[in-house]
């Protein structure tokens, strides 16, 4: 694994809101094809970090280089609506689905960047628009099958239970065909069974689709099980970085987050 090239490198990133430093001078890298976890206590800056990586926040200092396309593309300088076409997809801590659309349309909406139809094509729904709709529908159906959400295909997502909505959101991120998938607490608020399902999906996405995954999670047992390497943040500062075993024995991390036995 260690010989794999870097897909994302976070270099000396600092972010503050007014006078509050959310992230101070954090650097780490994500290698192609690994599962990288970001952990830390509440308010440590994990979500802020992910928001920087997805181009949602602009850090005041540092840069975040995305190398998935063989180029050094600085995520912090790219407009948010162009991030998706780089190959970066994400899910949100508080599910951010299009609540008025069906599961199917939520996933189809994520195919936006892969579609070429113009406004006129859309209006006429003939030729290219029709062909594209069918082609992308086939792609979407495959994801729907994979995530086992076929039964709620045409249900409006606003009315779905929490666990399913999390799954639909994962599907929407997958529909972008990402190379790098950022998951913000994909298993928050789930019971053990749902967590296991989600872990299975994440591992499948990682292995079968070869997607690199960065995830934030609070369930330590699970993080240590599925991730290749872990970054630990505390009060916006990186206090640990390494394999799960390194982290478990890291004094600082134990003190700040994991706690004594």
């Amino acid at each position: 694994m260690s010989s794999d090239p870097t897909i994302l490198s976070v270099e000396n990133v600092s972010l503050s809101f007014g006078g509050n430093a959310a992230i101070s001078n954090v650097s780490f890298d994500v290698r192609q094809g690994e599962i990288r976890a970001i952990i830390g206590p509440n308010g440590a800056g994990k979500t802020s970090m992910l928001n920087c990586c997805s181009g949602f926040y602009r850090p005041q200092k540092g840069r975040i280089l995305y190398k998935g396309n063989g180029l050094d593309q600085d995520v912090t300088k790219i407009p948010p609506h162009n991030i998706a076409s780089l190959g970066i997809a994400r899910t949100f801590q508080n599910i951010a689905l299009y609540t008025g659309l069906s599961t199917l349309d939520n996933l189809m909406a994520a195919r936006h960047i892969h579609m070429k139809q113009t406004m006129l094509d859309s209006m006429l729904f003939w030729g290219r628009a029709l062909r594209e709709e069918v082609e992308h529908r086939e792609f979407i159906e495959e994801i729907i099958d994979f995530l086992e959400i076929a039964h709620i295909r045409k249900a409006v997502v606003g009315a779905l239970p929490y666990g399913l909505r999390k799954r639909v959101e994962l599907g929407r991120a997958l529909a972008l065909e990402p190379k790098l998938l950022l998951l913000d607490e994909p298993m928050a608020g789930m019971n053990v069974e749902e967590k296991e399902d989600m872990a299975r999906f994440i591992l499948d996405i990682h292995e079968r689709r070869g997607v690199t995954i960065v995830l934030i999670e609070h369930d330590m047992g699970l993080v240590m099980d599925i991730s290749d390497r872990v970054v630990v943040l505390d009060f916006g500062v990186k206090i640990g970085d390494g394999t799960p075993d390194d982290i478990k024995s890291n004094e600082k991390v134990i003190h700040a987050y994991l706690g004594q036995e």
Partner: peptide
């Protein structure tokens, strides 16, 4: 025309903006 817009790429992008403009932007709209 209106029906066609609402069921294709354009219409979905519109609803995406209505329902969650931040997510829509990160998903390429």
């Amino acid at each position: 025309l209106a029906n066609n817009i609402s069921r294709t790429r354009l219409g979905r992008a519109f609803v995406a903006i209505r329902d969650n403009d931040l997510a829509a932007e990160l998903l390429g709209v």
